[in-house]
Design a protein around this nucleic acid. Structure first.
Lengths: 167, 167
DNA sequence: TATTGTTATACTCTATAACTATA
DNA sequence: TATAGTTATAGAGTATAACAATA
């Protein structure tokens, strides 16, 4: 940093630094910032990466709507992301044999290769983000975050599924 | 939730659920979603709240630029947020006696009152978000997040301060 | 009638550059 | 020349509604 800054002196107890929202925003911002650089080759950036991860899973022929629910992004965004990934040859849309409305998104060989590369770079970025914690606390943070994420109501699903009972 | 969903069956080990980015995004989304409802009275939503928190701190006559650094939002956004908060009578801009270019942002009495209300509602929202963890693990997660947030490079400051040495 | 996927549209947040007034 | 604040603008990300095809 600079030597002539005016903002470092804020070590108080009641400041914004104590706010959960502040910490979440700051971590999220730092993560996004470094992550987009790590997966800059993938269409759709960090979100394209998540779609690719889901598409590369075996045994889970995800429909686009199921993808939207799991990734907590709007189904309209999934359309764009899959468009871009498909154009890049990383995934393909297959008709669902059981439901002719639905289309399964699966990764191609090129997609899996690209995913491997991206995953490695992303893991490095994550490690550097969590480097302030030791490896143990870093793993602990991942675990706690995952628990909260799983328990959090994916409220986006309400709009995505067209539920009308949530006035 | 609904009884006829198709996405719950994804309990695999290698899925997106293992991704740090997935957990962060999902937690952040859930937080933002509930937080904006909790502070719906405040101009600027969750970010307006953070500005108000900083403005209400004693002994820290924050300039707008210092605010931008701490909150990791662009200085141009601070202008809008302070505009709205000032129009609502929650903060005022005071000239910095030591630097006629700078303007200190301080909360008014009404601002402090609104902050108290908002803070209470936000604390309840946070508790419900972290309710899946016990009170102990919840506190632990806050602590770990804070450590990462503090250590994370506030890269936004580069653009905000006009540093030119970062290619 | 309800759901999957698509398109169109708007709104928020973010990022950058250009401008002013001070230093 | 550099900094604090403002304004304008463009780009992501997000949200909603409307539509076609299918269930």
């Amino acid at each position: 940093m600079d030597a002539t800054r005016t903002d470092p002196p804020a070590p108080e107890g009641g400041g914004v630094e104590q706010e959960l929202g502040w910490a979440l925003h700051r971590v999220m911002t730092a993560y996004r910032r470094t992550a987009v650089e790590a997966v800059t080759d993938l269409p759709g950036g960090a979100r394209g990466y998540q779609v690719l991860v889901a598409a590369a899973e075996e045994g889970t022929p995800s429909s686009q709507l199921a993808l939207a629910h799991r990734l907590v992004i709007d189904k309209t965004a999934v359309t764009y992301l899959v468009d871009d990934l498909e154009r890049a040859g990383l995934v393909v849309r297959r008709p669902d044999p059981a439901d002719r409305r639905a289309r399964q998104v699966v990764a191609t060989e090129a997609g899996r290769a690209a995913l491997d590369v991206a995953r490695r770079e992303l893991r490095a970025v994550e490690a550097s983000l969590l480097s302030a914690l030791g490896p143990e606390d870093g793993e602990h943070l991942r675990h706690l975050l995952r628990r909260v994420a799983v328990s959090a109501p994916a409220a986006a699903a309400c709009a995505a599924t067209g539920r009308a009972d949530v006035e």
